[in-house]
Amino acid sequence: MSAFVVTLLGAESTGKTTIAHALGAVLARRGERVAVVEEYLREFCDGAGRTPRIDEQRGIAAEQTRRIAAAAAACDVVVADTSALMIAVYSDQVFGDTGLYDAALAAHARADLTLLSALDLPWQPDGLQRDGPQVREPVDAKIRAALARAAIGWAVLFGQGEARLANALAAVERARTTPDDDGRPRWQWVCERCGDVGCERHRLLPSL
């Protein structure tokens, strides 16, 4: 992938789609070639009129990865409204199936920045895809655990409206200007207030 790839993760109703489109629009206005990759799971559910079966999860994850790679080959910046990792997490949450994690994490590791949407937005219903507010905390925990196992860093997005977008933009700007040891940008800041992973807001997060 030649583009700078930003991937949004998060439990349901945490503003991933809103931030993906808003972030993409801001970067496009700056003159960059930007692609916003939609969530294929939503397209699948809308088309099938149901949620996927366990045997359909792997194909959905693969298609999400394929679309991100295709966009990255043609643009300067890709903003992905989720990755295959979210399919792996939901397959684990819904079916107890942990077989999708390895491939999903390998694909996700090719992203340049992971933005994890915090649970500070109110839950809202949205058709077939949302199970209820009670699933958000366990899903969030599974995302964090998977990223930690793969040693993939992430930035947590907090805030309402424009504040959340501003935090996303700050994360992108920092990641694109702060290279890690192998020369690839990597984001280390975990919230909009500070970079101290020891503060009480980060007590459940691994050290990055």
Rank of each mutant, 00 (worst) to 15 (best):
A170K: 14
R29V: 06
C194T: 11
I60K: 08
G153H: 12
G47L: 02
A74M: 13
V156Q: 05
G15L: 08
A145E: 01
I68A: 13
V172R: 11
S91K: 00
A88T: 02
W123V: 06
H108W: 00
N167R: 10
D55Y: 08
V135Q: 00
Q124W: 05
A118Y: 10
A73Y: 10
V78T: 02
P206S: 04
L27Y: 08
G59E: 10
L27N: 11
G24V: 12
K142Y: 04
C191F: 01
L165H: 07
L119K: 00
A20G: 04
L100Q: 03
K142N: 04
V190N: 11
A35S: 13
S117P: 03
G161C: 12
W123E: 00
R186L: 13
F44T: 10
Q134D: 15
A73N: 09
H21T: 02
E137V: 15
E39C: 10
A109F: 09
P206V: 05
R67P: 11
D76K: 06
A28P: 10
P133T: 11
A88M: 05
G132S: 05
G183Q: 09
D46Q: 15
A104D: 00
S207D: 15
C199H: 10
A48T: 09
P179F: 11
V89G: 04
A3D: 06
L115K: 07
W187C: 10
A170Y: 08
V135T: 08
H21M: 02
T51Y: 14
A35C: 05
S13C: 13
L41K: 01
A80L: 08
S2M: 06
A28H: 12
M1W: 09
R149W: 09
F158P: 00
R67L: 12
Y90V: 07
L105W: 07
A107D: 15
A48S: 13
V78C: 01
T82F: 13
P138I: 04
A48H: 14
K16R: 06
D180M: 04
A3R: 00
L119A: 02
A146L: 08
G132F: 09
V94D: 08
D81V: 12
R33K: 15
L23S: 02
